[in-house]
């Protein structure tokens, strides 16, 4: 048997004075430390299961986590150990807070993707997104502009630092600038915008429809570069028309040299190939092509950047709860160990 410090496990139930009632025995069951062991094991098993299964199965964590929170709350409510040891109490309360905050975060988060060509302003629309059922959307009101980026590449086309200049209008009406990338997101109203490894070339066009409407300016985002280096072509439809258009970027020079360090940049010389049905045209910046439904002017080449956006209001609270947990745990062990040297018998 291990001589243990502190009171034995026997006297850790409800206080002696309480009259045993059906309620207290249920509570006692829920507060059991042996149940904690079972729950910790179940949580480990659920994580393994979710990790090994091919399809998203994070729901298996919900059961053990709920049991975890119940067990912990019951123990905090009834176990006299927590009355005697404040640090231990604070630690376990922080654990409950962490679980509740994670649950709140899952209910209210938003995660999405967007792409902006250089000079383009975010209009609140995402290409792809997922969010918790209680997410209160404020994204539509947010605006920022992608003012261009540079990315270093090491030998062997290894991506280095990304520096993306962005600007936006602060609530006081002043224009703000920042350089984001790698470690630094742009944070607007709690929405965090991160650059991604997804980026490429974006030919910019002006479309003058025959119908006489206003000319439309737009960019076409070609497949990511250098990921799809040899597939710099895409099919798209002109605004207000049904004609599918095929666009390809052609250039000869080496942008990212595997033999030496380089930088992501636009090719110095290039041309755009546009194909609509049978018609095929090569365009240089400033040139135009007449199509059945209007005139398409090629303005020039730009870059586009892919962003991920993440919203989770719990982040600072979660960090605070985690820091509180670890500090109180250290405090608990400090109290416990400084009370008695390890080599003195109980």
């Amino acid at each position: 048997m291990t001589p243990r410090s502190g009171p034995g496990i026997e006297d850790r139930g409800l206080p002696q004075s309480s009259v045993p009632s059906p309620h207290s025995s249920i509570l006692k069951f829920f507060a059991s430390l042996k149940l904690t062991l079972l729950i910790l094991a179940a949580l480990g098993a659920a994580i393994m299961f979710a990790y090994l299964s091919e399809t998203p199965t994070t729901w298996v964590l919900a059961g053990p986590l709920t049991a975890f929170a119940l067990n912990l709350s019951a123990a905090v409510a009834t176990n006299p150990v927590f009355r005697r040891q404040t640090a231990l109490l604070v630690f376990h309360l922080a654990l409950i807070a962490i679980i509740l905050l994670i649950a709140a975060g899952r209910l209210t988060y938003l995660k999405g993707q967007l792409e902006l060509a250089e000079g383009e302003v975010f209009d609140g629309q995402l290409m792809q997104e997922e969010s918790g059922p209680w997410h209160q959307r404020q994204l539509e009101t947010l605006r920022f502009s992608n003012d261009g980026f540079t990315i270093d590449y090491a030998k062997g086309i290894r991506r280095g630092n990304t520096r993306n200049q962005v600007s936006w209008v602060a609530p006081n009406g002043q224009i703000q600038w920042a350089v984001i990338g790698d470690q630094v997101p742009l944070v607007l109203d709690g929405y965090r915008f991160y650059t991604s490894h997804n980026k490429g070339f974006a030919p910019a066009f002006t479309w003058h429809p025959n119908s006489g409407g206003l000319p439309v300016l737009g960019t076409v985002h070609l497949p990511a570069y250098p990921l799809h280096e040899y597939k710099q072509a895409i099919e798209w439809t002109l605004p207000g028309s049904k004609t599918p258009l095929w666009v390809m970027l052609q250039f000869d020079e080496v942008i990212l040299d595997p033999a030496k360090p380089s930088e992501f940049r636009l090719p110095a010389k290039h041309q755009i190939v546009v194909r609509a049905g049978e018609e095929r045209r090569e365009l240089k910046p400033g040139e135009a092509v007449r199509l059945a439904e209007g005139v398409l002017v090629y303005n020039g080449l730009r870059s586009w950047m892919g962003y991920t956006v993440f919203y989770d209001f719990t982040l600072p609270w979660l960090l605070a709860a985690c820091v509180l947990a670890v500090l109180s745990l250290a405090w608990h062990f400090w109290n416990k160990f400084s009370a008695k040297p390890w080599n003195k018998a109980a």
């Binding site: 048997m1 243990r4 496990i9 430390l33 042996k34 904690t36 062991l37 480990g44």
Partner: peptide, 10 residues
């Protein structure tokens, strides 16, 4: 688990 096992059982 290990830390708890030590307080839950002898």
């Amino acid at each position: 688990f290990a830390l708890h096992a030590r307080v839950a059982y002898k």
